[in-house]
Design a protein around this nucleic acid. Structure first.
Length: 414
RNA sequence: GCGGGUGUAGCUCAAUUGGUUAGAGCGCCGGAUUGUGAUUCCGGAGGUUGCGGAUUCAAGUUCCGUCACUCGCCCCA
């Protein structure tokens, strides 16, 4: 092996992987399109402030995971760790708040400086949707339904589980947070070291600690559902009713939280058990505070993001390469003619493989190797008669056809 | 950032307690086969044993460091 390695946590997508990758993105895009979402692309890097301000100073993403550097103009820029901040920024800088509601889909690379493991990379890809300007619970329902439809189309939904929770509105959150911190503080010394830190920075996080001792304490902790305002309670009930109407099953997980302050009301995660520790395949929620936090007008938003690599791992189905038609010329004259024939067929959208070297045996071998569906054999005899021999490689059946009928004959091989 | 496991050919794996020139299968290239993709037969290329250091007469094998992968923690898609 050579000393040349890809940067840690990055990987190459060779054709087989790339087909799965593309299939995942296309499936997501198509599902989103069916719900009225249009594809957008924001830059893969932004001024560092865009992420710092939106993700908060205590989140892991900001404190240890950002790829940040100074460009030649002295600007501090960051490779995007997620796409919601970029979309929100675009909403403001493009003046799009005049055109609400907006429904956007995106797909592309994200970057987080983390320790890689299964399902976690430093450069990875996400698809996602953002619904902006809709404050009604119908927005949450539609966003979740879009994610479910995406996974359904992937053939993964029946192995997935949707977990749902509500964080409530600001009033609910503040009330609950106060009670929770009081409760946890009374057990402070018995909490794990990690959780003692969480208690300072992000008390809600203590709720989903994996430490056994923490879990015992958390088991008796006050529940967020008991501190919801009437509005927040009604909102969540409406979301659940919508999911019920759609026949989307879910489990309520009161310990499911989001780390960032601007999240409110609905949050959800879809996990797939056959993935290991990094099993969240799609996650999202409502972020009504984000746009205003960035300096724009009060604008509600809901959305989700889904990991393309994780989805690709969950994909069971084989995605075979498309099968071309191989042109097999014999001799210099045939080779010149083959160049033109290949060109004509390609203009008609046939997939055509024309080799560069080799005698007939070599070329037939290559045709077999690229799993060609048919070979078009051009020898002096055939050309003299204005014909080509067309051999179907699955059956071995072969017949001569006039060159003028080639496209028609090959039509079933398209 | 923390902890465990693993690194031998393109791939899957061998290589007695440290002992000569690190092997095999598959794959690849060429030939048997300048008008046919299977199979078969023959030949060939391909390795700084991840990298660096230490111990030793001698290291793929032992030790240390490092890099990468992997499983988990943290966190997340």
């Amino acid at each position: 092996m050579s000393g040349l390695q890809p940067v840690r946590g990055t990987h190459d997508l060779l054709p087989e992987d790339m087909r799965r990758h593309r299939h995942v993105m296309e499936t997501a895009r198509r599902a989103a399109l069916c719900f009225g979402y249009q594809e957008v692309a924001t830059p893969i890097f932004e001024f560092t402030e865009v992420f710092k301000r939106t993700l908060g100073d205590t989140s892991d993403v900001v404190t240890k995971e950002m790829y940040t550097f100074t460009d030649k103009g002295g600007e501090t820029v960051t490779l995007r760790p997620e796409n919601t901040a970029g979309v929100a920024r675009a909403l403001i800088s493009e003046g799009l708040t005049q055109h609400l509601p907006l429904k956007y889909f995106y797909a592309g690379p994200m970057f987080r400086y983390e320790r890689p493991q299964k399902g976690r990379l430093r450069q990875f890809h996400q698809t996602g949707i953002e619904l902006l300007g809709v404050k009604e619970p119908g927005g949450d329902i539609e966003v979740i339904a879009t994610g479910v439809e995406f996974l359904r189309r992937l053939g993964a939904w029946d192995r997935c589980e949707l977990e749902l929770n509500t964080l409530g509105d600001t009033a609910s959150r503040q009330a609950y947070r106060k009670v929770l911190v009081e409760y946890l503080n009374s057990f402070r010394d018995r909490l794990s070291k990690d959780s003692q830190e969480r208690l300072e920075k992000n008390p809600m996080r203590v709720l989903d600690s994996k430490d056994e001792g923490d879990q015992k304490i958390v088991a008796n902790a006050p529940l967020s559902s008991e501190y919801l305002t009437d509005e927040a309670r009604d909102f969540f009930a409406a979301v659940r009713e919508g999911l019920d109407l759609l026949g989307i099953s879910y489990t309520i997980n009161q310990r499911l939280v989001r780390g960032l302050d601007y999240y409110c009301h609905t949050c959800f995660e879809i996990t797939c058990a056959d993935l290991g520790a990094q099993k969240t395949v799609l996650g999202g929620g409502r972020y009504d505070g984000l746009v205003s936090l960035m300096g724009g007008p009060e604008t509600p938003g809901v959305g989700w993001a889904s990991g393309v690599e994780r989805c690709a791992m969950v994909l069971q189905q084989e995605l075979p390469a498309p099968r071309p038609i191989a042109i097999v010329p014999m001799g210099a004259a045939a080779e010149r003619r083959a160049l033109q024939i290949a060109d004509e067929l390609r203009r008609q959208d046939f997939l055509v493989d024309l080799g560069f070297t080799g005698n007939m045996g070599k070329r037939m071998k290559r045709a077999n190797k690229v799993s060609a569906i048919a070979a078009v054999i051009l020898g002096d005899d055939e050309l003299a008669r204005g014909e080509a021999a067309v051999k179907l490689l699955d059956s071995g059946e072969q017949k001569n056809v006039p060159l003028g009928d080639l496209a028609a004959t090959l039509a079933p091989c398209r």
